[in-house]
Design a protein around this nucleic acid. Sequence first.
DNA 1: CAAATCCTTTAGATTATTCCAAAAACGCCG
DNA 2: CGGCGTTTTTGGAATAATCTAAAGGATTTG
Lengths: 345, 345
Amino acid sequence: MTVTIKDVAKKAGVSPSTVSRVLSGHPRISLETSRKVKVIMEEMGYTPNMMAKSLVSKTTNSICIILPKPAEELFSNLFFMELIRGIVTQSSRSGYDVLISSGANEKEELEAVSRLLKGRRVDGVILLYSRKDDAVIDFLESGGYPFVLVGRSDRYEDILSVDNDNVMAAFDATNHLISMGHERIGFVSGPPNLIVSRDRLEGYRKAMQNSGLEMRAEWIVEGEFLQDSGYRAMSFFMNLPNRPTALVAVDDMVSFGVLRGLNELKYKVPEDLAIVSFNNIPLSELSSPPISSIDIGIYHLGYTASQVLIQTIQKPDNDSGYTNRFVIPHRLIVRESSMYAPGKK
Amino acid sequence: MTVTIKDVAKKAGVSPSTVSRVLSGHPRISLETSRKVKVIMEEMGYTPNMMAKSLVSKTTNSICIILPKPAEELFSNLFFMELIRGIVTQSSRSGYDVLISSGANEKEELEAVSRLLKGRRVDGVILLYSRKDDAVIDFLESGGYPFVLVGRSDRYEDILSVDNDNVMAAFDATNHLISMGHERIGFVSGPPNLIVSRDRLEGYRKAMQNSGLEMRAEWIVEGEFLQDSGYRAMSFFMNLPNRPTALVAVDDMVSFGVLRGLNELKYKVPEDLAIVSFNNIPLSELSSPPISSIDIGIYHLGYTASQVLIQTIQKPDNDSGYTNRFVIPHRLIVRESSMYAPGKK
DNA sequence: CAAATCCTTTAGATTATTCCAAAAACGCCG
DNA sequence: CGGCGTTTTTGGAATAATCTAAAGGATTTG
């Protein structure tokens, strides 16, 4: 039924290995033969059987993305999709296929990873975000399997990973507000167990300190990556005696919550409160007013992760000398929500 | 290095074929041997080499999703991610792996599909949405490869596909407004070349006719699945002499645009204009007011697509007798944006 | 004519499945 | 209890499609 390398060889009057050489661009093959074989391959519609190839070469030319447990939130979905797009694009350019896997729980996840790697179905793995899933990372490390972490982990410092400099990003966001003339700046953080939250909070602190601005405990509120947190933070801030004139929020969704609350109370943005947040989701430019946001380059994050992983697969020895941490640049997108210089009261 | 079936066989003092039979749950194997072999497999940490298995069995236990060309819009991203989640979940339950592929253009896409199927890397394909990409569908059909279309295509009626009944969905949405007492109902459609747009428009028409309500040409506006379209449609509607009291929008994003516009003009929702739209994206319940929306069960769409595809792969003959079109039920989620019964003027 | 060079072929390896046959166990009858 | 037919369980060998290393053949050169 299907055309195999043998069929091509027979028709071309050469041996299968010659065809194989043509296929892999082996230097020691005459141009004439090469051309002839290529024509015949085309004619017969030959496509190499990847399974046989993989079996012999012990490589699959595919990598696998491990999706964390079903995250139903808006941001996660946008984030993952964008990341996947980056990964798939880069991988396909490098001639790699991408497999998506996910498990209902950590045990299932580990089983899947183990099956895929030990069963030689994929050559490497991209892990999303640093859950403290030691089991999976431990398995990957001890087995010497190539993998990249998107995000960063406290526990493992020497792991190959791709991430943003969230401290710097928050520093920039805060500085932007400071440079607009704000002095009382609030911060709405995310869950304290997430490294992103901690890093961004630290960046905010640094910027405030750096400019010698007062930092009050009540100007820092903890929440989630959700509208609700923003809504609540807003009403808390606005009731303070000496309320902030601007705030930095860990996620655009939080900003939307803030915006909604301010709107209900007839406050104006950015005049009554200027806002900057993170992640620059597609909606940030569509809200009214559009929200200033730090674009963290999600697509780029995925693209780089794939690149780094495939490099490692192809040259496992190469420690790349310098670092195992790849930092994707962020950039501040200034929109209306922060375009206002407060006058001194 | 790696443990193969031979190693297990040797250690267990049986032949490789026996181990293979234990693995596949062959009935003709003594319980005693089976147990012994299983213990040894466990001990040695044996995982079957999928490549070798695939080579022999001519099946890969994996399917492939073809992502359309990079769609950057919010809805597409949410849609795809949700779909992927459904597909991955179901596939993994059926013991299948999922590959994601995409090409920069149609030619690349076709090449990828061809390589994956002819190269025996996947057993079947899930196509997203009905671009008129005849090339890919033609290839799949003529090659007799299993595939499922998510969405529907005019040209191919007998193709295996999973979709919503968009006519009925729009009928339901419109009827909901009618049952609330609305008589002048507008419709904001999507691009006219999309089948979704046409179907939903038809459903709207049917509902209006069915209730004997007047239908005016100026109450139907064409747009895109974007906020802007809603914004423009809104200002058009509100300036009509005999303006609608309610409207149906093809997509939630459109509703957001409408909402923004109404808000700027100090109109109230649902009192001045009631709104229902489609797709029920996570944001619809978060806007103010929350938007009534038709949930089209995206996850379910993906879940079913995977199910149907895998069934076809495993029993290619089975025409399932009835139909090749699988319809995923929708449901109307009523929220504030339509919770108002207009009094007669 | 031997040696060198170049290209191609042959043979063997990769790992797991499956068919066919062999061995073992079982039962029944004389 | 031996012999014979059956059934159950297991082993051996062939096969799947490709790659690699070593060997082979042809052509050219000295």
